[in-house]
Simulated scan of single mutants.
Amino acid sequence: MGNTSFTTPWDTGSQTYRRLLLTGMALIGVGVLLAIVGAVAQMLPVSWAALSLIGAGLVVHVCAQVIRFRDARRRERARTQR
């Protein structure tokens, strides 16, 4: 089986990455819950607010991925300069 030292992005990610990732996931989750409430209660403003939260959550999540890739590039650059 060989090498079992598997690391996850969470293990190697910076504090900023972790915070952005969790914030994005929370915004998406709240947005989904609001979308369900808005649909069941037939309240269009709640549904639009939910859509906004989901969109904001996706933007924050993508920002977290950009931070993750930036950090990985820095780690790789530092590793190759040794």
Rank of each mutant, 00 (worst) to 15 (best):
M1A: 08
G2H: 08
G2Q: 13
G2F: 07
G2K: 03
N3W: 15
N3S: 07
T4A: 15
S5F: 12
S5K: 11
S5C: 10
T7Y: 07
T7I: 15
T8G: 09
P9V: 09
P9K: 07
W10R: 12
W10V: 08
W10Y: 15
W10G: 10
D11V: 06
D11A: 12
T12C: 10
T12I: 03
G13S: 12
G13V: 06
G13A: 05
Q15A: 09
Q15E: 15
Q15D: 13
Q15P: 03
T16S: 10
Y17Q: 13
Y17V: 02
Y17K: 05
R18N: 07
R18A: 06
R19D: 02
R19S: 15
L20V: 05
L22R: 14
L22M: 11
G24N: 04
G24P: 05
M25W: 12
M25G: 09
A26Y: 03
A26H: 09
A26T: 12
L27G: 00
L27S: 11
I28W: 01
I28M: 10
I28D: 05
G29F: 05
G29I: 11
V30G: 03
V30H: 01
V30M: 05
G31Q: 06
V32Y: 00
V32L: 08
V32H: 09
L33M: 14
L34Q: 05
L34D: 04
A35R: 00
A35K: 05
I36V: 08
I36M: 08
G38A: 05
A39N: 04
A39Q: 14
V40P: 00
A41K: 09
Q42C: 01
Q42A: 13
Q42D: 07
M43Q: 10
M43N: 10
M43C: 12
M43I: 10
L44I: 06
L44W: 06
L44F: 04
P45C: 08
V46H: 00
V46Y: 01
S47D: 02
S47G: 05
S47C: 10
W48P: 02
A49P: 01
A49Y: 00
A50C: 02
A50Q: 00
A50Y: 00
L51F: 09
S52A: 07
L53I: 01
L53W: 00
I54D: 04
I54G: 02
I54S: 00
I54P: 01
I54W: 03
A56S: 04
A56G: 00
A56D: 02
G57F: 01
G57P: 03
L58G: 10
L58S: 11
V59M: 05
V59W: 12
V60Y: 00
V60W: 08
V60S: 03
H61C: 09
V62A: 06
V62D: 07
V62W: 04
A64P: 00
A64T: 06
A64W: 00
Q65N: 11
Q65K: 09
I67R: 06
R68V: 00
R68G: 05
R68I: 01
R68Q: 10
F69E: 12
F69P: 06
F69L: 14
R70Q: 10
R70C: 06
R70A: 14
D71K: 04
D71L: 06
R73V: 10
R73D: 15
R73N: 11
R74G: 07
R75E: 13
R75K: 13
R75F: 09
R75P: 09
E76A: 14
R77G: 07
R77M: 14
A78K: 08
R79L: 14
T80M: 13
T80W: 11
T80D: 15
Q81F: 14
R82T: 09
